[in-house]
């Protein structure tokens, strides 16, 4: 989790900055993290097609990485990634 320490957040669970939900990086909910290996990727875009967020970065038709700010770690991308490529692996993250 890339979040703030207990010394930095407002006490009492208060939200003191109105309308800040867009700053809320739901990626912190993740307990498994997809790791993408560019060298093994065959650019089939199955992961991009299946990611429910979407959190697969694609630039000019090519996967370039994963948006960890919002990826929730569901593992669908790793599941759909063709077996022979095996370009995404889920790693535990706490």
């Amino acid at each position: 989790m890339s979040e703030k320490s207990w010394k930095e957040v407002p006490i009492g669970g208060l939200i003191v900055e109105p309308g800040n939900s867009k700053n809320y990086k739901t990626g912190s909910w993740r307990s498994f993290k997809p790791v993408w290996y560019e060298d093994r990727c065959i650019q089939c875009l199955a992961c991009w097609n299946s990611c429910p967020e979407p959190s697969i970065f694609v630039v000019e038709g090519k996967v370039t990485g994963i948006d960890y700010d919002f990826c929730k770690g569901c593992g669908i991308c790793a599941e759909v990634c063709p077996e022979k490529a095996h370009a995404i692996e889920m790693e535990p993250e706490f």
């Binding site: 989790m1 979040e3 703030k4 320490s5 207990w6 957040v9 006490i11 009492g12 669970g13 208060l14 939200i15 003191v16 109105p18 912190s28 909910w29």
Partner: peptide, 21 residues
């Protein structure tokens, strides 16, 4: 003038920090 929200959902990411406070 300084709006705030009380009692918002506080999950795995910050509940623990608030208990520490």
């Amino acid at each position: 003038d300084k709006p705030s929200t009380y009692g918002a959902l506080d999950l795995q990411d910050y509940y623990f920090e608030h208990k520490r406070q």
